[in-house]
Amino acid sequence: MHDNKSYISSFCRIKNNHVTLNGDTVFSKEGTYSEFIKSAYKNLDIKYPKFFKMDRLSKLAFIAANVVLNHENVTPEQEENIAIVFSNKASSLDSDRTHQTSIQNKENYYPSPAVFVYTLPNICIGEISIKYKLYSENSFFIFDNFNAKHLLTYANNLLDTKKADKVLCGWVEYDGNNYDALLYLVGNKGKTEHNTTEINTLYNS
């Protein structure tokens, strides 16, 4: 049961070599994912050298979160209670495969903490929390498909119980050469109603 009305105030999509904010392209560049995401980082003028140490999933989530939170004037200097609720299908399998490659052959055995730390999907939430100083509720969920009902239920609970004032929700997937991020911010202000129809519309557009 959801008590107070909530709204989606802005959203970012990253897929097919495009970064969009509220439906408008803010950056695009042809090329591989690595080239594209690095160019996006530079073009969006983020200036955060830790970005280069992140794995591919974290880079994706980090850029998408930056686009939404910057647009919403969220800064580390002014603390806000913004929860993070992310989901995907492949968990951290992209980094998992990298770690597995480093241990598969005993003659060529080189496990590394810099890779291993990214073998958890919620590390990308940690990266965003550090950048924006979000000491807030956070959780990472796995589903076989985008699950608007789950994101809605969980975000509504955090808002209803006053665990959070706003919730950064969405889907961040990196698997093989496929990537897709949809992040949206939910709060008590905005034009788009926070319901499964609207969330699915964002995802399917």
Binding site: I84, P113, V117, I123, I125, G126, E127, S129, I130, Y132, K133, L134, Y135, S136, E137, N138, S139, K163
Partner: peptide
């Protein structure tokens, strides 16, 4: 219940136990 982030480091806990 509560589940809060340290906003400090990805592989080390906060020195102040903030989260």
């Amino acid at each position: 219940e509560g589940s809060c982030n340290d906003a400090n480091h990805i592989s080390g806990p906060s020195r102040t136990g903030e989260g």
